[in-house]
């Protein structure tokens, strides 16, 4: 094992907190959401007033959703005004051809085994940044907007319905929006598989302790082992 030659503080506390709250919220939202779509348990025969079977799952889904939204907004604030060079939007310009240029191409080539050396990034590499933009940023925004639109259906003319109700005609009706929200929730397991695989692989290949960095905040540069 090589000697640790440098310790870099990459993920500051707000980023780490965001990461874990987000992870827990998304898992909870996925589980409760799937339960709402297909409730498994039926209480025994009796009076409805004694049970909260569905109401409780829906309540959990809504509470966690609002924590998720608050956490997302906090991360947005941190990206824009946090002045954290590993957590900002700054360098991410997917609309610009220059962004798709050398660094992105090199990283893709490396993932596709077309080049032997791994480009090394302290923060997110360009491919990771794109994946996060698509899944975490766009995905969260879609799930939040569609979720609030459906939440607003409970109270027509209220806050959620007034601000996000336009999502319903946009997607051709309430049922279709429910369907797409349901389909969208599958982004989570897909993302989790890719995310965990990429992290563990980078840790094994590059030995940058990226896995533990989301708990400790530190990544390491390891000296190549002298043979």
């Amino acid at each position: 094992m090589g000697r640790i030659i440098e310790e870099i503080y990459v993920w500051r506390l707000p980023v780490r907190l965001y990461h874990w709250i987000n992870a827990l919220c998304m898992v909870a939202l996925f589980v409760t959401g799937m339960y709402i779509a297909a409730p498994l348990f039926n209480p025994p025969l009796g009076e409805a007033v004694f049970y909260k079977g569905m109401a409780w799952w829906r309540y959990l889904h809504f509470v966690v959703a609002f924590i998720f939204i608050a956490n997302f907004l906090f991360r947005l604030y941190w990206a824009l005004f946090g002045g954290d060079k590993y957590a900002r939007f700054g360098g991410f310009r997917p609309w610009s051809p220059s962004w798709w240029g050398k660094p992105f191409r090199e990283q893709v080539e490396s993932y596709l085994f077309l080049r032997s050396d791994e480009p090394n990034y302290v923060g997110h590499n360009p491919v990771a940044a794109l994946a996060h933009f698509l899944f975490i940023f766009c995905g969260s925004i879609f799930m939040i907007f569609s979720g609030l639109a459906m939440y607003g259906e409970n109270n027509p003319g209220g806050f959620s319905e007034t601000l996000f109700g336009w999502m319903i005609p946009l997607f051709g009706g309430s049922y279709t929006l429910h369907f797409i929200h349901h389909l969208g929730s599958w982004m989570l397991p897909i993302y989790v598989i890719m995310h965990l695989y990429a992290v563990i692989r980078h840790d094994v290949v590059d030995r940058t302790s990226v896995t533990s960095s989301i708990i400790t905040g530190y990544k390491h540069k390891v000296e190549e082992e002298p043979d």
Binding site: N42, K52, G53, M54, W56, P156, P169
Partner: peptide, 30 residues
């Protein structure tokens, strides 16, 4: 938003359904 009169189409059938109590309780016909 879909061009329907609000007086009749503002709320969902679910919101005024007399079986809503069973929905909230999680008591479903299988």
């Amino acid at each position: 938003r879909l061009g329907r009169p609000k007086a009749f189409y503002k709320t969902r059938i679910h919101d005024k359904c007399y079986r809503r109590a069973f929905f909230d309780a999680g008591m479903f016909v299988e």
